[in-house]
Write a protein that binds this DNA or RNA. Structure first.
Lengths: 260, 260
DNA sequence: TGGTAATATTTGACAAGTCAAACTTTCGCG
DNA sequence: CGCGAAAGTTTGACTTGTCAAATATTACCA
């Protein structure tokens, strides 16, 4: 019944349920208790709360599954988590375990607009020629060894060479690649979203706009539903939805984080 | 007596007291209540807690001041807050009010090592020739208008020109500037910390190491105690402490944030 | 089918934090 | 001085979240 925003604690429960349900079919109270390192009785409490809010299907002694609403809210929480964690790992070069723990705490408090900036920033860093993997590596080096600012000129020169190279390649082969030809793991930047129909409208609404970086997560055997990740959202699109989307390929993801 | 870590709530109280005491001489319960938008009776509670922990000087009906320990802990909380807020404003181009609110929530949960990365990253972005004010401006533009990746070549070329210009300047005038000749507001990067004595040891321990960016906050009339900010710490150093520190000047701070 | 172990739930206690209302102290001003 | 308003405190109630212990249910195996 209650419909006020979830507390941090309840968000944690829902998130745990979401990830457990993603792996298995359904969640048992014990799985949740173990995952959150909390007493089983606390879980029962939380389940009642979440059930009251119509986020989970639950009856005493029964197994837990998500309602549609719960799935949506859960996905959103996971998204927040992933975005932050990704930022820590990819940009701040924090090691994954710590990134994850920190994201866990932060996900409850970072407001939407700031979250959006985190996404954009990762995109920007990975995409802008002045950023990129090398630049981030330079940051990791800066953190561990201190600054070495002698070879800045070389660094920027190398950067310029890269841009020119990429530009020439771009003119010959990387324009308007069809999304379905890309392999899982590959990343691409949206260059254009054609069409004005409701479908392309929906696509734009989901964050697929020019400049957005998308990652191909999975292509079904027949090549039809393509799972992608854009702006933190995991989307599953059908082939015909993809026709209006032009992309250009990007290099692989940015380097590994540094142990803290 | 109790000496366990402060809760988020108590940290907020202590932070509020710290800032109020910085402005006036001492804090009244009402000031705190107003600042935190909390009932007066809740403040009394918190004051007891903080007093038990020897962080504040407090007696019923009396005014509140900080103990040395409280000042230290309070300064640390404020530092965490400032670091995060600065990151949001300077890097993510978030507007100041929102940055402040977000920092307020986050300051309680971000672990030290990650916090350190935030500092370093701001330094890196402001310092690395491939970053800098222009680059951040490009990010703000990217957030509001979407990507424009046509003139990347020009952008990097301009960047290269800047590096070379700076390099030439560097060779003629910016090496080994004395800290005391700098004006308030000016920023500089530490290039060397000379000496092996206990003083230079202490200086290094406070984060003044080669590569660190420092900002001059205030120079006393006689030029002697110089207030600086390094790695989020506000320090007050005497002239003789500064002798072993070589710096080079940096351009002004990075541009203004974008309204969200 | 019955019994045991694993799993869930209920209950009660507790800690932190908040507010509202009643009460006390302080302070300034006529 | 003394009175009233402002500020501070105490008390009690309530919320959220936790755990531990007692109790209940389920599942599995002989």
């Amino acid at each position: 019944m209650a419909d006020i925003a979830l507390s941090a604690s309840l968000e944690d429960y829902l998130e745990a349920i979401y990830t457990i349900v993603s792996e298995k079919q359904a969640a048992r109270a014990k799985d949740i208790a173990d995952k959150l390192k909390v007493h089983r009785s606390s879980v029962t409490n939380a389940l009642h709360e979440l059930s009251d809010r119509l986020l989970i299907n639950y009856a005493p002694y029964d197994i837990v599954t998500l309602t549609d609403k719960g799935r949506a809210v859960g996905a959103d929480i996971v998204r927040r988590h992933e975005i932050l964690s990704e930022f820590f790992v990819k940009v701040l070069a924090v090691d994954e375990a710590l990134a994850d723990r920190t994201a866990c705490e932060m996900e409850h408090v970072v407001p939407r607009p700031v979250l959006d900036r985190f996404i954009r920033f990762v995109e920007y860093v990975e995409t802008c020629p002045r950023g990129g993997a090398k630049w981030i590596k330079g940051f990791a080096h800066y953190c561990t060894e201190g600054a070495s600012l002698d070879d800045c000129e070389h660094c920027v020169e190398a950067c310029l060479v890269d841009v020119r190279k990429r530009k020439n390649q771009g003119e010959t082969n990387s324009m308007a690649v069809a999304l379905t030809t890309l392999n899982p793991g590959q990343r691409a930047r949206v260059t254009k979203v054609k069409g004005r129909g409701p479908v392309s409208q929906r696509i734009r609404a989901m964050g697929i706009t020019p400049g957005a970086v998308m990652e191909i997560e999975r292509v079904a055997p027949l090549g039809d539903p393509v799972d992608i990740k854009v702006r933190g959202y995991h989307l599953s699109l059908r082939r015909e939805d993809l026709d209006g989307i032009e992309v250009e390929c990007l290099a692989g993801p940015v380097g590994k984080p540094v142990e803290l």
